[in-house]
């Protein structure tokens, strides 16, 4: 099972670090990371393996969106299937 973590907002120091720490604490393994600047906005997409999470999916999702609020970023965690089904035939 894999999930996509998307981070959108103003670029600041330590975004990747803080998100990674949050993932590590919950045993979510980061598989891939992509970063781009999109219309002056920083956008990071992280693919994480959530097979061996030490907490519920909800907990990971809530703690990351909480972190997003603290840093003034919008962070979403969504199961990768939603993107696969929407964008791939």
């Amino acid at each position: 099972m894999r999930a996509i973590i998307s981070v959108v907002g103003k670029d600041t120091v330590g975004i990747l670090a803080k998100v990674s720490v949050c993932c590590a604490q919950r045993n979510a393994n980061i598989v891939d990371v992509t970063q781009t600047i999109l219309q002056d906005l920083f956008a990071m997409i992280m693919l994480v393996d959530i097979q061996n999470l030490n907490c519920g999916f909800e907990d990971l999702s809530d703690s990351l969106s909480e972190l997003g609020k603290e840093m003034g970023l919008s962070i979403h965690v969504m199961h990768e299937d939603i993107f696969n089904s929407m964008h791939r035939i």
């Binding site: 959108v8 891939d32 992509t34 997409i45 693919l47 919008s74 990768e80 939603i82 993107f83």
Partner: peptide, 16 residues
């Protein structure tokens, strides 16, 4: 890996 624009498109559809 999935295309960044596709991912952002989905999020935008839901959020906005």
């Amino acid at each position: 890996m999935l295309n960044v624009n596709d991912i952002l498109e989905t999020i935008k559809m839901i959020e906005e």
